[in-house]
Design a binder for these strands. Structure first.
Lengths: 243, 243
DNA sequence: CTGTGTTCTGGTCACGTTGACCTTAACTCA
DNA sequence: TGAGTTAAGGTCAACGTGACCAGAACACAG
């Protein structure tokens, strides 16, 4: 009953400025393989499951270790276990997907971080990945795009306060489709997932938009009777920050 | 990286006559544990993953071996891997859920089948199960009930031809809620998943209902870019049957 | 043979949601 | 002061849904 390696991998999503247009675009951090199976090819961040830790904890740990980002949302995606998916032996991968807020993408410079082997890619223009990770990413993208339409997960990609225009841009970037501002407003406001702070953003050359905040009492996504993964522990939270 | 046992379990759903009322009710077959962890308690059918077989194949195999039923639908549900879910060591379980048509529930009498340790239970009145299988079943039930409302999986629980009244009873049994016959008819017919055979069912003391058949060109459920599990091989298909 | 009870089948109606579109508000900048 | 911009609120038609109604087509009792 052993002989089967158990790994976790995570598809991490964040909105980053497009390298050419500069507009926010859905992006994924990848890790370059430095060892034999698929050496030199890009792959999803991940690692072996420690026998003492849960699958979700294992995902957060390997995710932070390899990419340095701190996710705002983590959910199990699917378990991939085709017998031939790794040429070096049987490996079953429990895959998670995660969302990261722009402010949490710290540009790491600490020891143990190899900038040459970790890089962000535009989600719709990835290179051919190692293992079956092309399929994994395709499925994760489908899940994210499906879920952003019926749940409030977009908050996992945006800061704590925002204008409805900014929130709409998140949805547009994920769905890769322009949305009607007025209809988007109506939909979001009637959903009750969002609350106006009362403040307005000054400085634009137009009418100052209201600031909003997500209603923290509402769940970010409906997982049914499944308990959500525990929040990721923060190594160093800026004191005085009211997140 | 070993030390972690990898298992599969399956939550199998079928409609069977309620032991008291006789009306069709959502039911689940369970297996009584004959070995140490949770000995004597009922648990989901399953077993260890063979290093040579895929996860889906492993689920179908263990499912047939222990319960004898042949599923019409099989889908991965979730992977459970809490460190303490098995008292004898670390076990990660990839859980599938399956649907079985009434005609496929053969009452097994062959050797190797222990009727005393396999039994069907009403899904909403299960005993307290081994391991974390109570949670597993709760999640599977939620998924089934959610999915029956927006997909055509109900065909996995019904024979090849049926009246809309019979199909409605399947939905009612799954959702545990009565549905308006006229509205149900409108919804199903406009979905295009079902085709009238042209025949009618005689014999009832009322207007003879049309017979329908599922449109086999339409997928049973939308899994996104994920390939559906391969159809379960039939040990002995009745020849001449046009399934 | 006729009435009654049953389900089947097609229909109407009110209501809520959605996409398309319009209008005014409120700001900056030339 | 006017032009340009986005914000914010509104209308309207189309659509899907739940509640409900009514005739159709059978079996059965009397």
């Amino acid at each position: 009953m052993p002989e089967i390696g158990l790994a976790v991998s995570t598809v991490i999503f964040a909105l980053r400025p497009h390298p050419e247009t500069g507009r926010p675009v859905l992006s994924i951090p990848l890790v370059r393989r430095t060892r034999d199976p698929f050496e030199g090819r890009w792959a999803l961040p991940g690692g072996w499951v420690d026998p003492a830790e849960s699958l979700g904890t294992s995902a957060s740990r390997t995710l932070v270790e390899t990419t340095g980002v701190r996710p705002s949302y983590l959910e199990q995606l699917y378990t991939f276990g085709a017998p031939d998916r790794s040429p070096t032996g049987r490996v079953v991968s429990v895959v998670y997907w995660a969302l990261v807020r722009p402010e949490q993408i710290g540009e790491r410079t600490d020891a143990g971080f190899d900038a040459h082997n970790v890089a962000w890619f535009v989600a719709d223009a990835l290179p051919h990945l190692a293992f079956d990770h092309d399929d994994v990413v395709a499925y994760a993208l489908w899940r994210l795009r499906t879920k952003v339409e019926y749940s409030a997960i977009a908050q996992g990609l945006i800061g704590s306060t925002f204008t409805l225009s900014e929130l709409r841009q998140v949805h547009e970037a994920v769905l890769d489709r322009v949305l009607d501002p007025a209809n988007f407003r109506r939909q979001v406001e009637s959903s009750g997932t969002v609350v106006a702070t009362g403040e307005h953003v000054q400085g634009g050359r137009h009418r100052p938009p209201r600031l909003y905040r997500y209603d923290t009492s509402a769940p970010l996504a409906d997982l049914g009777p499944l308990a959500a993964d525990p929040p990721i522990p923060t190594p160093a939270d800026p004191p005085g920050e009211n997140s």
